[in-house]
Design a protein around this nucleic acid. Structure first.
Lengths: 250, 250
DNA sequence: CGACCGTTTGAGGATACTCAAATCGCGTGG
DNA sequence: CCACGCGATTTGAGTATCCTCAAACGGTCG
């Protein structure tokens, strides 16, 4: 497999973090920023397709996504895979390992991904010294929960067409808020990923995406999807959007 | 509707909390217990079938379930309902309202439910003064996330029979750890609830449960299910269980 | 007794699945 | 340069799962 991991001790200083200036994120006090900067241990860069964390692993680290796309998933013994959610810049990963002892899901990169690395051991000092950051972590966990609620609603109760529309609208909105689209509104994802997210077969997923394409809402390309009408996708799904104000990240 | 809510200012003192002695929960220091006791504002008792929280509501309170069964759900505009998870003693509810401003799901009681009431405003002092409790809240949120991961895997990738087996094993295990079964291992739930949890129609759910009954794994009764072989249910679903050690609650 | 809720059953049909094969683009090795 | 393999997408055919519609049954409650 052509995957590789590279740990840089080189640190993008948190004061120069490319994410913080985005209007999507809340501003941090100098005090908070300074703590996070010391909390950060290094950076990790992985190639597209490589596994960032494996179910069952005991990782000593927490990560915040700096750039790139990826996804969380679980598998059944016979290989059936369910994608749980997608990771994008600002997302905290590895928290599960803190409460369960080991990871309960795996994480894989869809594109080249870079991550900030934190020492799990020092999480308690964050809770002791910086209640506002502690609250942020709870906030982040609760946000993930909320997204999972929506996915569950989708997989459980929406039709195939609605599900596909919902998922693409969801990914599109998240990408848009993070300013991930430079002109081309391209989501780096495979139809197999869509299928494994929506609980559908790849064949049926293909036929469903084709319908969205015929309506001019998306255009499928090799290894990805270009969204052409996010609002109509939301309308089909009956989805209101994430509707957040600013959100924190560590 | 024959629903009612009663707020008692009467407080079961947290020092005499009937849940804390259970081996399922972690022990609390005197200090923590004292704070929680002051944090608690009263108790709320609701009848079976009544709505505890409604999607869109701005509640000023957080709750911990003291006794009884209930469920969280979301609905689509046309009435399709997805049950997201079940609430049982020790569960914290209403946290979503803290981060999103308003509730993103509704909560309904399956049996008579009693709840400890907390003031949301004072949550920040918890974070400021009691880092260990703050961490517990994160822990609780991460646990909920983990359960949702499992449900999503189930609804997305398991067959109808596997889904039903998983759900009943899940509810059975949770109830067992909370010592909720006095001899009769009875889960107070309707086939419609099962259907809305598993993403199936009521008809198909009925036929699926019937198969589990024929195998002697469960016995269905009016408004509930008696589990007769939890281990075999887990085996059918390929589910390992929640496998937690002790868990905290507020 | 009658209304109502939850459960059960049957029939027919829609949705989504599996199997199979063809196409396409891309990178690799000859 | 070309053949080849590989992964992703596409299409068709036949089938299984699951759905809707409809109706009946049983228990509870007023």
């Amino acid at each position: 497999m052509a995957t590789s991991k590279r740990i840089h001790s080189f640190k993008t200083p948190c004061e120069l973090c490319p994410l913080r200036p985005l209007p999507h994120f809340r501003e941090f006090s100098r005090d908070e920023l300074e703590f996070v900067s010391r909390f950060k241990r290094g950076e990790l860069a992985v190639d597209a397709g490589s596994t960032i964390l494996v179910e069952g692993a005991h990782s000593a680290h927490l990560f915040t996504v700096l750039s790139g796309w990826g996804f969380r998933y679980k598998m059944l013994e016979d290989g059936r895979r369910q994608i749980l959610n997608y990771i994008m810049p600002g997302d905290l990963i590895g928290l599960q390992g803190t409460i369960a002892g080991e990871m309960q899901h795996s994480i894989e990169a869809l594109s080249p991904v870079s991550l900030c690395v934190f020492e799990r051991d020092r999480l308690m000092t964050l809770y002791n010294k910086h209640p506002s950051l502690a609250f942020d972590i709870t906030w982040i966990a609760a946000r993930e929960e909320r997204i999972l609620d929506e996915h569950l609603l989708s997989v459980g109760r929406r039709t195939a067409l609605e599900r596909a529309a919902y998922l693409l609208a969801f990914l599109f909105e998240r990408g848009r808020k993070l300013d991930l689209f430079n002109g081309r509104k391209f989501i780096p994802i495979t139809q197999q990923h869509i299928a494994d997210t929506l609980g559908l077969s790849i064949v049926h997923t293909n036929k469903t995406l084709r319908k969205l394409g015929e309506r001019g809402l998306i255009r499928w390309q090799e290894r990805g999807c270009e969204v052409q009408n996010g609002e109509e996708l939301m309308a089909i799904a009956g989805w209101e959007g994430l509707g957040e104000g600013k959100r924190p990240f560590i």
